[in-house]
Amino acid sequence: MQRIETYRVDGMTCAACSSAVERITGKLEGVDSVSVNLATGKMNVTFDESLVTEETIFKKIEKAGYQPSQDVTLKEIIIPVEGMT
């Protein structure tokens, strides 16, 4: 199944980095298209889940020296709860 995801990539300092990440990811089988934006530090990947996993993509990028991660905004809340014994 085709999946389109946006990931964060840390450690990119120049255009050579973003283009390296682009090439490394693009070469993977199952990756349909990839575009890395240096200014935002994000990448858009379209890939076929049955051929390649997020894990494989991340590993490849990590091996080249960059840190990919899921692009999520985490939030922490504290809720008092009643009824606990």
Partner: peptide, 22 residues
Amino acid sequence: LKQAIKKAGYTPLDIEKENTSK
């Protein structure tokens, strides 16, 4: 989240503190 807490049999009160966007 609150619903899940309720389902588990507890009563959630108002949020005390939140810490946005790490």
